[in-house]
């Protein structure tokens, strides 16, 4: 293994760049290094002006998502050696506005996340000294979706979101499902009202790439199709029983 590797990093300074360009750096290629280590090496030793987000270095915080050789990745979990002999191209997450270098504006995702009401909704709250019991099976029904770390790789992988910014997008829908499938939750109808609108779930064409890039195996693509089935069932119910039902 050669002991150095070339990294091409997207650079953009809002004050004096019309559009992003690339700077090339050479960094040590170490077996245990991930792309994020290379970026930190650049920042510490080669170019202190490089901006990027990171925090936990262990695939939990979800802040170091970037595009590595065209594919959305958590840079803390993407080994440099997998790209040897290089070069490795690091760009900001696609489909989001770039604020500077590798930092993107995530406001749109946060607004959408809020709209899908990702919290437990109860018609009547139990008194504080009463518990909400759940069986292992009930936990299993939504556990997969609760693994989401809001890293937005799925948004970067989704061509529909890139083309139609109104689309709710993978993670927001998967997280809505996480609460819909929770036995303690009673807010499914409220979420359905929002997500079954035209731009909510129906824009999804099941490209499936959101599921492929997800570092936590959340499977947003599956969640969206399952939600389409739910929305269609509810639609049929409302057709047959316009006033009845839940």
């Amino acid at each position: 293994m050669a002991n150095r590797i070339t990294i091409e990093v997207a650079r953009y300074h809002p004050a004096h760049d019309e559009k992003p360009g690339f700077d090339t750096y050479e960094v040590p290629l170490r077996k245990e290094w991930v792309v994020l280590d290379a970026l930190n090496y650049i920042k510490d030793h080669l170019d202190g002006t490089l901006s990027f987000r990171w925090s936990c270095r262990m695939g939990v915080c979800g802040s170091c998502g970037m595009t590595v050789n065209g594919v959305p990745k958590l840079t803390c979990a993407t080994f440099l050696s997998d790209y040897a002999p290089g070069p490795v191209r690091v760009e900001p997450l696609k489909n989001f506005p770039v604020l500077r270098d590798l930092v993107v504006d995530t406001s749109d995702f946060l607004v959408k996340l809020g709209k899908s009401k990702p919290w437990i909704i109860r018609k009547v709250e139990k008194p504080l000294d009463e518990e909400y019991l759940q069986t292992p099976e009930e936990l299993d029904a939504y556990k997969q979706y609760s693994m989401c770390i809001n890293c937005m790789l799925c948004y970067a992988a989704c061509p529909v979101y890139g083309l139609d910014p109104l689309f709710s997008g993978p993670a927001a829908i998967a997280l809505a499902q996480r609460y819909n499938l929770d036995s303690r939750d009673q807010g499914a109808n409220q979420r359905l009202d929002i997500l079954s609108q035209h731009d909510g779930i129906w824009g999804c064409t099941f490209v499936g790439e959101c599921t492929q890039v997800c570092p936590k195996n959340v499977d947003p693509a599956g969640a969206i199709q399952q939600y389409k089935l739910t929305a269609t069932t509810e639609w049929l119910k409302a057709l047959v029983l316009p006033r009845g039902g839940t």
Binding site: D193, S196, Q197
Partner: peptide, 11 residues
């Protein structure tokens, strides 16, 4: 349900 969409039917 408010704003009904015909998407479920088409889907």
């Amino acid at each position: 349900m408010n704003k009904r969409s015909n998407e479920p039917f088409l889907w």
